[in-house]
Simulated scan of single mutants.
Amino acid sequence: MLPVLAFAPNADAAPRAPVIWAFGDSLSAGYGLPPALGFTARLEGALRRAGVAATVRNGGVAGDTAAQARARLRWGLRGLGITPDLVIVELGANDMLRGLPVSQTRTNLDAILTELHERRIPVLLAGMRAAPNLGPEYGRAFDGIYPALAKKHGVARYPFFLDGVAGNRALLQADGMHPNARGVDIIVGRMLPGVRKALRGSAARAG
Results as ranks from 00 to 15, higher is better:
residue 89 V to A: 07
residue 78 R to S: 12
residue 59 G to T: 01
residue 77 L to K: 09
residue 109 L to H: 00
residue 35 P to W: 00
residue 119 R to C: 04
residue 73 L to E: 06
residue 98 R to Q: 14
residue 70 R to K: 12
residue 44 E to H: 02
residue 124 L to C: 14
residue 56 V to C: 07
residue 127 G to A: 05
residue 130 A to L: 12
residue 129 R to V: 00
residue 82 I to R: 15
residue 48 R to S: 07
residue 114 T to W: 10
residue 55 T to Q: 15
residue 124 L to E: 03
residue 102 V to Y: 07
residue 111 A to G: 06
residue 43 L to E: 00
residue 90 E to D: 12
residue 68 Q to Y: 03
residue 130 A to S: 14
residue 63 G to Y: 04
residue 55 T to V: 15
residue 35 P to Q: 09
residue 38 G to P: 02
residue 134 L to K: 14
residue 64 D to I: 01
residue 91 L to D: 03
residue 132 P to C: 06
residue 97 L to I: 04
residue 41 A to F: 04
residue 101 P to V: 00
residue 109 L to R: 06
residue 86 L to F: 06
residue 67 A to I: 00
residue 82 I to L: 14
residue 33 L to F: 09
residue 111 A to Y: 01
residue 116 L to A: 06
residue 68 Q to K: 14
residue 125 L to R: 14
residue 102 V to P: 10
residue 39 F to W: 10
residue 126 A to E: 11
residue 57 R to H: 12
residue 124 L to G: 02
residue 131 A to Q: 13
residue 83 T to W: 10
residue 106 R to F: 04
residue 75 W to D: 06
residue 130 A to V: 02
residue 38 G to D: 00
residue 95 D to R: 11
residue 120 R to K: 13
residue 62 A to S: 15
residue 93 A to D: 06
residue 107 T to D: 15
residue 94 N to L: 12
